[in-house]
């Protein structure tokens, strides 16, 4: 989700004109410049419960929204960088065939940019996966929170936390491995991308 929104933001920033790109800059600054915990708090208590009066909203939905918005702000940077590295001539060549600009972005620029940004994307995933404990503040029990309650019941702190660390490690390495495989699969023969 963050990737889709991040891509839209990157397109808006690159091709959307001054007003759109300024708005996007504010958005990105906000989400990158403040803590995830604060964002979760603000959205849960401030916006959903306060302004929208949704007392019964599921914190998990809020968590999902905040994570998406936060991750999009970061990913916009990756996507934009990757899109800029696809040289302008690829766009010109597309236009020369009669493709419209959105078509050229869709069929030429993005497929090339996505290949370049997979390594950056795996970074983003690993840091996001480890920031789930921030959600405890709005009442979502993530892995760490679950571990804490087990530990305090059983008094086996070291074992519990070590096990939880292991789960994170496994989870993240599996996803990274999958991304690596995808990266290899879509790599273009004859081109070494160093990103």
């Amino acid at each position: 989700m963050g990737l889709v929104l991040g891509t839209l933001l990157a397109i808006g920033d690159l091709y959307g004109g001054k007003i759109v790109s300024t708005a996007i800059r504010f958005y990105v600054e906000f989400f990158r410049g403040s803590a995830l915990i604060a964002q979760a708090f603000l959205f849960f208590f401030g916006i959903f419960r306060g302004m929208l009066r949704l007392e019964l909203i599921d914190p998990i939905i809020v968590a999902f929204i905040v994570f998406t918005l936060n991750s999009a702000a970061y990913q916009k940077g990756y996507v934009k960088g990757a899109m800029e590295s696809v040289y302008k001539d690829q766009m010109t060549a597309g236009l020369s065939l009669g493709l419209s600009k959105p078509q050229a972005i869709m069929y030429i620029v993005l497929p090339q940019a996505m290949r370049i940004m997979i390594p950056g994307w795996s970074n983003e995933f690993s840091s996001l996966a480890k920031s789930t404990p921030a959600l405890l503040t709005v009442g979502v029990r993530d892995l760490t929170a679950a571990g804490r309650s087990i530990a305090s019941h059983t008094f086996r702190f070291v074992e519990t936390y070590a096990f939880i660390g292991l789960i994170y490690l496994l989870w993240i390495s599996v996803v990274m491995k999958i991304l690596d495989i995808i990266y290899d699969k879509v790599k273009l023969p004859g081109i070494e991308i160093t990103a």
């Binding site: 060549a93 493709l99 078509q103």
Partner: peptide, 30 residues
């Protein structure tokens, strides 16, 4: 532009497509 063919000095094929894919793109989408 679709009615005007253009061949570039620096070629500018689409890197992510095969020779055939490069040609098919315009035919399919335009």
């Amino acid at each position: 532009r679709a009615r005007i063919g253009f061949v570039f000095q620096h070629i500018w094929l689409f890197h992510h497509l095969t020779a055939r894919g490069n040609i098919e793109l315009g035919l399919r989408r335009v």
